[in-house]
Each structure stands twice: as C-alpha cells, then as structure tokens.
Design a protein around this nucleic acid. Structure first.
Lengths: 204, 204
DNA sequence: ACCTGAACACCGTTCAAGT
DNA sequence: ACCTGAACACCGTTCAAGT
C-alpha cells in the first residue's frame, strides 16, 4: 500500500499518537507510535525528523494548551500563574516529564512564556542582572517538583531504619497528594523569598 | 577464555567503568561498559542484575563520596551544606543527572542524608507536618538546578525574537558560570524563605 | 509526495555450554 | 563461580523501490 491518495500520516496524527502513548504510561518510541498508527516505522520519517522532534512536538502542543493564559497581573501573580500552569501540565501528563527533561527547549511557545516572565520581573524592579537567575530558579523548582510528582510513591520509603524520615512518611499523605502539598509549600516559600528580595532592592 | 582463576570482573570494576563512561559523556549502557572492560555484555550479569543496578551503584558511590560530611551545625548550615554537597556532586558528574533522575532512590547512604535533614529540621522547630514538604522542596531545587547545570548552553538561547530574554542571555554569563550564579541566588532565596517561615512559626 | 520492506547498527537480557 | 557465544526481542534511522 504505497502512496495512498489521502495521506495516512501528518505531524498532528503522529503527535496525537505519541501523546496517547505517553499518557497511558506505555513505552514511548518511534516503533510504538508506528504500531499504534498501523504503519511502518520508516513512514514516520516522511513527516518528522526523528524521535527528538516528536518529543519537541509534544512539548509544543502542551505549551500551547497550558501556557498562553498567563498574561496580566502583578509580578507575583505572573510567577504564581506560570508555576501553576506548568504544575497542571505536569500533573495531567506525568509520564512526559522524563522525556522533555533530557532535551533542549526549542519550542517558541515555551520560550515565549519564559520571556514574558523575564519581562514582568524586570518591570517589577528586579535588577536585570538577577532576572535570568530568578527565571532559572523558578524553572528548576517547577521541573524538580514535576519529577517529584512523576516519581513513584516509594521514593521516600527507606528500606533501612531511619530516625525521622520513615515515621513522617508513614504518617503523611502519599503519592500525588503528598507532592501537591509540597508544591504549595514550595510556591509559598518561593514567593515569600522573592518578595523579601524585592523589598531589599527597594531599600537601596 | 571461560572461568579465569582470578576473576576479571566485580561490582567495583563495573561501577568504575560506568563512572568513567559517564564522566566522559560517552554513551552509557551495558554494552559500552562491557566493551571498556574487554568483556562480553553477558558477563556483567554474573555480578549485577542489569542496567538499573549499575546506575544505582553509581548513585551509591557518589553518595558515599559527597554526602557524609554533612553532620553538625545549625539547621540552616545543614540545609546549606546538604545543597552544596549535592551541587558539587552534580557539577563534577553532570552526565549522571539524567540517569539518576529517572530512577527511584534505594541507596541507603542517600536515604540517610535525607533522614538527617529531616531530623535537623524537626529539631529546629519546623512542625512535623511540614518537614517532609521542606525536604521535597530542597530536593526539587537541587535536582532542578542539577538539570540546569547539565543542560547545554543553548537552553536559554531563543530562535525567535524576544522582548527581554534574548538580551539578558546575550549580556549575562554562560554555561556553568550562569548556572552557578543561579544556584547561589536560589540557595539564598530558599534559606531566606525558610528562616521567614520558622520565625512565623515561633510567633504562634 | 508518501508509504513499504529490507537493511544497518545498535540496545538489554537470557541461557546453555565450557572450565 | 565466572566467562563466552548464540539467541531473542527490541531500539532508531536510512534508503531504494513502488505508485
């Protein structure tokens, strides 16, 4: 069946199939996508440069879906909105995190959202020298908490006896509930820290 | 050459070879390790359960090397020491980060260091309900900044024109220097936030 | 332009065979 | 106990051939 008159594939169909696999937690790869689409792996290369581009396609798709609504407001609302948007994205597509983490960002939507963050922080009074650091910190926190969310429950389940950790783990919430608590706590910490810093700048 | 009277392999030799590969940034895997050791891939399975165990072996080895020295001091010294120790570890073995990030922690040394952190925070007056959150936040920041360090220079080099980001990237430091700056800034932010929180607790 | 099928150079893992 | 070699079931990617 070579060259059907109406094409079987497109970057969109490929991205759809890829997202399906990832959301099911199924093994992700060029071959798996081809199988799901009832097509030969080599067919995909007519539409896509390879595995990395498919991952980047997914990042872009999620970026468009989750990131644009962070527009107005005060600087701390923008920071909070940006972090919550990413959090929702990671929470609803946890298996994507390990994939996108090991790849450089090229998607313009994602870049644009970081640019917006940088512009807002600069306008709020953060010195230009520090803005990039703050963006990196926000990004690190977001990614780190994303991985925390994606990791299995047993991350904090030690096999050897512990002084404190084991007890706290046993008493506290588990899984997504635990990670969500930590995210909220961290968000508050981050915003408090940034407000304090801004206040100090304004003393000078 | 079956069954040499003095064994060619051991978990230690395997871990050594694995670390060498990772530190060179060479492709990491069972086959590559075997090649480096002048041995058949299947030989490794006499000493090790598989790829995952080799990664865990490396994590343990680095844990023993970098983490133990965080013992005494005030709670914020312990937090700072713990973060700096991990930072040094990631900085000196950046290619390890993507590997360990996608795997659950089972190594007792690493668990012990988190336990120590939890014990210290609880003793300092952080409510037990919040200690686990704080540990997760510290971990997220550490991992996130580790990935930031490991990622190529071009992460923040947008292809499309930007309002602020592109200019800041052009002016500021690059590579490890940029990441180190952000780490220092984030560490300060984290400690300030935690001190503020502790002070609030003590008001009640 | 778009798909197939064969081919290539890889993976990680298992297992019988050898000493 | 410890290594080999063959085998298995995978990867991602390239490319000539077909319409």
């Amino acid at each position: 069946m070579p060259r059907p008159r109406t094409p079987l594939l497109s970057t969109d169909r490929i991205a759809d199939a890829a997202m399906e696999l990832v959301d099911e937690g199924a093994p992700f790869g060029v071959n798996a996508i081809a199988r799901r689409l009832g097509v030969t792996p080599s067919s995909l290369y007519n539409h896509v440069r390879g595995r990395d581009e498919i991952v980047e396609l997914m990042r872009g798709r999620l970026g468009e879906r989750y990131l644009p609504q962070l527009v107005g407001g005060t600087w701390d609302e923008v920071v909070e909105g940006s972090l919550r948007a990413q959090r929702r994205m990671y929470a609803e597509h946890p298996f994507l995190i390990p994939l996108i983490v090991e790849q450089t960002i090229t998607d313009p939507t994602v870049i644009a959202s970081y640019d917006h963050l940088a512009t807002t922080l600069a306008a709020a009074g953060f010195p230009e020298d520090d803005v990039l650091d703050v963006v990196a910190i926000i990004d690190a926190f977001s990614i780190g908490m994303g991985l925390d969310l994606a990791s299995p429950d047993e991350v904090w389940a030690p096999e050897t006896p512990t002084e404190t950790l084991g007890r706290l783990v046993a008493v506290g919430p588990r899984g997504a509930a635990r990670s969500d608590r930590a995210f909220e706590s961290g968000l508050e910490l981050l915003l408090d820290g940034l407000r304090l810093r801004l206040a100090r700048y304004e003393l000078d």
